[in-house]
Design a protein around this nucleic acid. Structure first.
Lengths: 198, 198
DNA sequence: TATCTTTGTGAGCGATCGTTCAACTATGGA
DNA sequence: TCCATAGTTGAACGATCGCTCACAAAGATA
């Protein structure tokens, strides 16, 4: 009964998270959102209640799809967890076609004082990345790829910080060579580097 | 000849950088600025041309005073450069009285797509920190505190990334213990840790 | 077909944005 | 003392903000 919804929720959220990642919460107006998603204000407010509601939905979708997807693909599933950690890092700046880099989580963490409703989602995403690192490190240690007395918890926390820092530097226009240098250093800091495995 | 200026430029810029650090460029309205600095719009526009001009002036002042001051105090001047690096890190989250943490550089780097005029200032500040790290590392190496074959340039880049990441996590409300863990890891990654020197 | 329900559309609301400017106030020199 | 100059003040401008709502369109039921 009633008219069918013409738009796909997942597509709208995907456009919204791209826009919010690029411009931030405050920098993305409802006119921008309408242009990016094709959603008119009326429909938006019927489904998402407010701009804030849309943002929280987009952040949740970002966590569930983008973050979890990358954690799974690079940290949980690869046969070689050490190589997976490396590719997790490089995938943050070797975006290929995508012209505007960065991470919605990082950006929202920084903006979180002006958008406090998003703090919980930020924490959730950061925790997911950190436990992904911890999982990969644990597996690498079990495989003998890393030292047996590696402190997994501390290393995971440090990798998360380095990863977030990388995403800040990406936004500041740091050249690729330096980002690679940082990635190499991150790998060296968790254990003996096997050369030429980039 | 003519009336004297009633306000101190340095004080106004100090208030402005606090406000911008807390709320971001877009999140700080001119009414907020007026309340924080005591500067009425007319005076502001006479001296700084625009909100953007004030922001750039505040970012420059932040670089010249806060960033350079901390680089000097922790990285360039201390007798023990390794301890200096550690205190540079801890000073980012052991703010004491200051209720709202974070770094104007980090925040502006993330916001830089919506405030492109600030990109140059961000780069300048980040470079100052990185070369401060490089200086401290070079001195530490010369003093025999760090391995003679330490790659200073690469380590400085990695410390900068870790530091920026720390400032993201601070904003996200990461507990102090974890921030200390990350700091410990940063120190361990540049050389053999001398225990209990926090 | 007529009716009911759900969704789409976009003009327009009050509020607030960054900015301007005319009136006002203080100061130094003639 | 009076004028020229520099600085202060805050009302108000047009633009844009997030948001609302009356109406149109589209499917389901009878």
């Amino acid at each position: 009964m009633g008219r069918r919804q013409l738009w796909d929720r997942a597509e709208v959220l995907a456009s919204a998270m791209r826009l919010f990642r690029h411009r931030g919460y405050l920098g993305a107006s409802l006119r921008d959102i309408e242009e990016a998603t094709g959603l008119h204000p009326g429909s938006l407010y019927r489904v998402f209640e407010s701009k804030d509601g849309l943002f929280r939905a987009a952040l949740d979708a970002y966590n569930d799809q983008v973050v979890q997807g990358r954690v799974r693909a690079h940290l949980l599933e690869p046969m070689d967890p050490v190589a997976g950690i490396r590719s997790f890092f490089t995938s943050a700046f070797e975006t290929g076609l995508d012209p505007d880099p960065g991470c919605l989580l990082t950006n929202t963490a920084v903006e979180s004082f002006t958008v406090p409703q998003a703090a919980a989602g930020v924490r959730r995403g950061l925790d997911a990345i950190e436990s992904g690192f911890a999982d990969a490190l644990t597996r690498a240690r079990a495989l003998g790829l890393l030292s047996a007395d590696l402190d997994v918890e501390a290393s995971a926390a440090r990798l998360l910080a380095l990863y977030q820092g990388l995403l800040v530097l990406v936004r500041a226009g740091t050249p690729l060579t330096k980002l690679h240098t940082i990635t190499d250093g991150a790998m060296a800091s968790i254990g003996p580097e096997k050369d030429g495995q980039r």
